[in-house]
């Protein structure tokens, strides 16, 4: 069972923007897949503070594997999808074919 990051979805004239709260997740640990209308974001958040000197006093942040599957209003198979990790947020731009042009 994986944890689910929160997500915002924006729309513009030329497409969609999905923003996921993935603070502390390394770029290499994120994997975005698109199939049909389904956008799947999977990955893993690792704890950065792993050292002999520091131990948890309390913990609220979810670590380990996450998975977020978002049902999009548009078909993704023929869409341009690009992702960027900025300030701890994963930004996924979805531009359906034809609309961007």
């Amino acid at each position: 069972m994986r944890w689910e990051p929160d997500a915002d979805i924006y729309r513009s004239r030329c497409g969609w923007l999905v923003k996921l709260d993935l603070a502390g997740v390394r770029r290499s640990d994120v994997n975005v897949e698109a199939a049909g209308r389904r956008l799947a974001v999977r990955g893993r958040r690792r704890d950065l503070v792993v050292s002999e000197d520091w131990s948890h006093y309390s913990m609220e942040i979810a670590y380990s594997d996450f998975e977020r599957i978002i049902e999009m209003p548009c078909d993704l198979d023929c869409a341009n999808i690009s992702a960027d990790l900025l300030d701890g947020m994963l930004l996924i731009y979805v531009t359906p074919e034809g609309e961007g042009r």
Partner: peptide, 21 residues
Amino acid sequence: AVIRKMARGSEGEIQLIVQGI
């Protein structure tokens, strides 16, 4: 399982919420 949340009690015990994977 993965530990989702945790907190320490005064006696050294640990309260935690775990989720089976």
